[in-house]
Computed example of a mutant assay.
Amino acid sequence: MKRLDALDAARFFAFCGMVLVNFRIAAQVAPGNGWATTFVDALEGRAAALFVILAGVGVGLSSVPALVLLRRAAFLFVLGLINMNVFDADILHFYALYFVVGAAFLTSTTRGLWAGALVIVGLAIPANLVLDYDRGWDWATLTYTDLWTMPGFLRNTLFNGWHPVLPWAAFLLIGMAIGRSELNTICIQHRLIMWGFGAAVLAAFPQILVSGPELATYLGTESIPPGPFYILAGSGTSCMAIGLLLKLWPRIEKTGLAPALTAPGRMSLTLYMAHILIGMGILEAAGLLNGSLSALQVVTYALGFCAVSSVFAVIWARKFKRGPLEALMRRVTEPRRA
């Protein structure tokens, strides 16, 4: 696998976006009109989409066997279930199921990957027409009432959770298709930027053209509920971010900032768990997860945590090749070499 440092940096930026969104959720910040609220709102559903697409890009660039990918899925699923006892909006157990879907498409052509993504999005549309998307949710507290029952867990995971397989698994297949491109060429980078921008703009129109509030919501670009144009918008912004970072990376390297971006990007699994167990843990210990923080305070704390994460990752990378959880996952899921 040819490693592209810009992709590690993109993963760190996706992580930072998820920290901002998750801290806002955990801190129960009241809606507002300030720039801090608008900034976090713009990242909701986009940072996580970039995170999943980058996972697909990594699979597309590599030659990982299906069995190893399924073992990674099992590892992440167990880790995600543990994490859900602390933070309901965990993405890892969803991530694991995206990998199961990805394993089924490892030998597909690039066209097959795009077709698979369209089928997944297509299956989500009738599911939303037939099933009750609100079932299980208490939207006032953002809690899922029957999450730990089998019907509730399956419904949440496949249909109406924070990042349900239908249609979020499409992001992984899109990433796998992108990963098979010549990402180190200017031509592909320009295509990612232009096509990504076009997709993001196009996705904004259907919501404007309909009058019914429920239909407008589903045809919008918000991540809840995740309609087809949310997938288009999330894919578009992700492609733009990846293309811009790939194109600008030579200049970024000259600034000397590259290690501060790539090191945390290479241990995003460890840092993801840390932002919940340590970052949110500090807020909880201080009694601040009760709606008392302003949006600006949450943004300040989240960005501070990201900066500390970057420093930690750079120091860790001087002695170790992988992050703690990354090394553990590799040890558990990949066959040992003789």
Rank of each mutant, 00 (worst) to 15 (best):
R3A: 12
L7W: 04
V19K: 01
N22T: 10
A27Q: 00
P31W: 02
P31L: 12
P31I: 09
A36K: 04
T38I: 14
T38K: 15
T38G: 13
R46Q: 06
R46H: 09
A47I: 05
V52E: 02
V57C: 10
V57D: 09
V64E: 15
V64G: 05
L67K: 12
V68Y: 05
A73I: 11
L76C: 11
F77Q: 11
V78K: 04
M84E: 00
D88F: 13
I91L: 06
Y95G: 01
Y98F: 14
G102P: 05
T107Q: 15
S108G: 10
S108W: 14
R111V: 07
W114M: 07
V121E: 02
L123E: 01
N128E: 00
N128A: 08
N128R: 08
L129D: 03
L129S: 06
D132K: 09
Y133E: 07
G136L: 03
A140K: 14
T145I: 10
T145G: 07
T149P: 00
R155E: 09
T157L: 15
F159A: 02
F159P: 02
W162H: 14
W162R: 11
W168K: 01
A169I: 06
A170E: 10
L172N: 01
I174Q: 11
G175W: 02
A177S: 11
G179W: 10
R180S: 11
S181F: 14
N184D: 15
I186L: 15
C187R: 15
A199D: 08
A200Y: 09
V201E: 12
I208G: 02
S211G: 01
P213T: 05
E214F: 00
L215M: 13
T221D: 11
E222P: 00
E222W: 00
E222F: 02
S223G: 00
G227Q: 02
P228E: 03
F229R: 08
G234Y: 14
S238F: 09
M240K: 12
L246D: 10
K247E: 13
L248N: 04
W249I: 08
P250D: 13
K254P: 06
T255R: 04
L257A: 12
G265V: 01
R266E: 12
L269V: 04
T270R: 00
A274Q: 04
I278K: 01
G281L: 00
I282Y: 11
L283E: 07
L288W: 13
G291A: 04
G291F: 08
L293C: 00
Q297C: 04
A302G: 08
G304K: 06
A307N: 04
A307H: 09
F312C: 10
A313D: 07
I315H: 05
W316Y: 07
A317P: 05
A317H: 13
A327F: 12
R331V: 14
T333P: 10
R337G: 06
